[in-house]
C-alpha cells in the first residue's frame, strides 16, 4: 500500500515545479486551481498508510491552513477567492478524516475497495450480546452516578480496552496488506468488521461521558 509518492505529485500551474501538495505551491506561493478532487493523503504529502506520522499531518495542516485561509484572498480575483474557500474546506475535511484513527481507516478502506460498498453490518461473533450486556450494566449504574462512580470508571476502562484492542488489530491488519497484497480483499473485510464493532463501543463511551456531565 505504500504507493510511489512522486508519481502522484502534481506540478504547479504557475511555475511548473513539482509540488508537495496539490493545494498550494510553496515555491511561487500560489494557490492551485483544482480540477479533480485530490486524495487526502496527497494533500498532506503523506504515504497511504494507517500508521500515520501524526506530527507531520499536523504540521502540514497548520502550514496549509495558514496559506489557504480565505481572509488572505479578500482582495484577490474572484476565482482565487472561491478557490481559497473550497481548498480550505477540503483541507479541513481531509484533516478531520485522517486525524481520527477510525475515520482514517474508513477512508483507506474506501480507497482500497475502489468505492465498492463493504458490509457495514457484520460483527465479530457474540459481539452484540456483549454490547447489550454492557449497556444493561451501564443502565443500572447510571441510576445513581455518584454512588457508582467506581464501577462506572471500571466499565469505562473495560470499553476503552476493547476499543484499543480493536484499533490495535486494525493497525496490524493494515500492515498485513502491505506484507501480503494478494490477500487484500479478505483483510479489507476483516478490517471493516473491526470498524463496525468500534462504533458500538464508541456509543457506549459517549453514554458514559454524557452521564458524567450531569
Amino acid at each position: 500500500m505504500k504507493h510511489d509518492h512522486l508519481s502522484s505529485h502534481s506540478v504547479c500551474l504557475g511555475c511548473n515545479i513539482t509540488m508537495a501538495t496539490p493545494l498550494f505551491c510553496f515555491s511561487c506561493n500560489s494557490i492551485q486551481r483544482l480540477s479533480t478532487k485530490p486524495n487526502y493523503f496527497e494533500i498532506f504529502d503523506l504515504p497511504y498508510t494507517y500508521n500515520l506520522d501524526i506530527k507531520r499531518l499536523e504540521d502540514n495542516y497548520q502550514k496549509l491552513a495558514a496559506e489557504l485561509h480565505p481572509d488572505f484572498y479578500l482582495q484577490s480575483a474572484s476565482t482565487e477567492k472561491r478557490q481559497s474557500q473550497e481548498s480550505s474546506s477540503l483541507l479541513n475535511r481531509a484533516y478531520t478524516a485522517l486525524k481520527c484513527p477510525m475515520s482514517r481507516a474508513s477512508y483507506l478502506l474506501e480507497l482500497l475497495s475502489h468505492g465498492k460498498p463493504l458490509d457495514e453490518r457484520k460483527l465479530p461473533a457474540g459481539f452484540l450480546e456483549d454490547i447489550f450486556e454492557l449497556q444493561e450494566t451501564l443502565e443500572d449504574l447510571l441510576v445513581d452516578v455518584e454512588d457508582h462512580a467506581e464501577e462506572l470508571a471500571a466499565v469505562k476502562s473495560d470499553v476503552e480496552k476493547r476499543l484499543n484492542a480493536l484499533q490495535e488489530a486494525v493497525s496490524q491488519l493494515f500492515g498485513n496488506i502491505e506484507k501480503d497484497p494478494s490477500n487484500q480483499k479478505n483483510i479489507v473485510e476483516s478490517i471493516q468488521v473491526n470498524l463496525n464493532a468500534e462504533r458500538y463501543l464508541q456509543r457506549l463511551l459517549e453514554r458514559i461521558s454524557r452521564s458524567n456531565q450531569v
Partner: peptide, 8 residues
Amino acid sequence: GAPECGDV
C-alpha cells in the same frame, strides 16, 4: 444493532 449509530 444499528450500524449507523451503534445503538442496540
